[in-house]
Amino acid sequence: MSTLSRTASELFWMTRYLERAEAMARLVEMGRRMAMLPSDRETAADEWRSVIAASGCAPHFEGRAVDERAAVLGLITDRENPSSIVSCFDRARQNARSVRTALTTQSWETLNEAWLKLGDLTEERVLRELPQTLDWVKGRCAQFRGAADATMLRDDRYDFGRLGIFIERADMTLRLLDVKHFVLLPETEVVGGGRDRHQWTSVLMATSALRAYHWAYRGDYSPWRIADFLILNHSCPRSLAYCYDEIIGVLDRLARAYGARHPCHHTATETVAMLADIDIGEIFHDGLHEFLIGAVARNNRLAYEIGAAYHF
């Protein structure tokens, strides 16, 4: 079993970009929710700035005045921003077009149709119909994942696509937690108040995990629990632990198919073992922020090692 290195790379990035587009939609949703709280203009701008920081698009907004309109358009329709939703779709579709033969017709048509519809996303329309637009984006990404899931052969190509999804998702969850880590710190519990509570729920909203959280923790909004849920809970599909369960599963499959293990296998195994050993108390004790930036770096290293192992 082997596949063209470029094909592996394009599939890996295609799913990463789609995952990113979806994460962007969730982040904008979170920002909107925060902005609906009564507050002064400066606080509202701060909320949008934290959304931008979590999106990793800060360089794009540097030196620009940030308000809701600028943030929403910059994160959704601006092609100058390489991580805007429209840019992500452009790039995912470009990746897909380069490896069309590696996709099933249904997967390709789903993505291509979504891309063709991007033309309808005018600025005016996005601002007027923001919730519908964000739902549409999430729907399309889900539809693509579904099409791929239902039709793609379970071979190494599929695996490279899966790796892209979970590397990106882990990265997004970690960065979101880091941006909001100050509201999750124990001392803020003392401060309490409606605004903080709203912050926590918004983090859960941004990961589409609010209802799941209710089921798991029965509406107990303690920051510890929220961090636990998004980092260590294996049943939360956006948690770091879950992403790494998926990653290690895929990497093991690849190792069996290719008959070889590489440094990326080692790195992923280490991370999984580390997540199994640690509890949320230790993480807070050693510093949540330090833990998060360490995990982001480790995730980046894994992505690099995967490329090196499979020659892309």
């Binding site: 063209l4 470029r6 490896v99 033969t101 190494d156 290719y258 499979y310 020659h311």
Partner: peptide, 28 residues
């Protein structure tokens, strides 16, 4: 390429060595 079930390659996927042509794959 799809209909024939063969790889669609670009020049950067290929190289020549020892008088033969090779494509760069995930297995080398």
């Amino acid at each position: 390429a799809d209909q024939m079930g063969v790889e669609l390659v670009e020049a950067r996927d290929l190289f020549v060595d020892r008088g033969l042509v090779w494509m760069k794959t995930t297995e080398g």
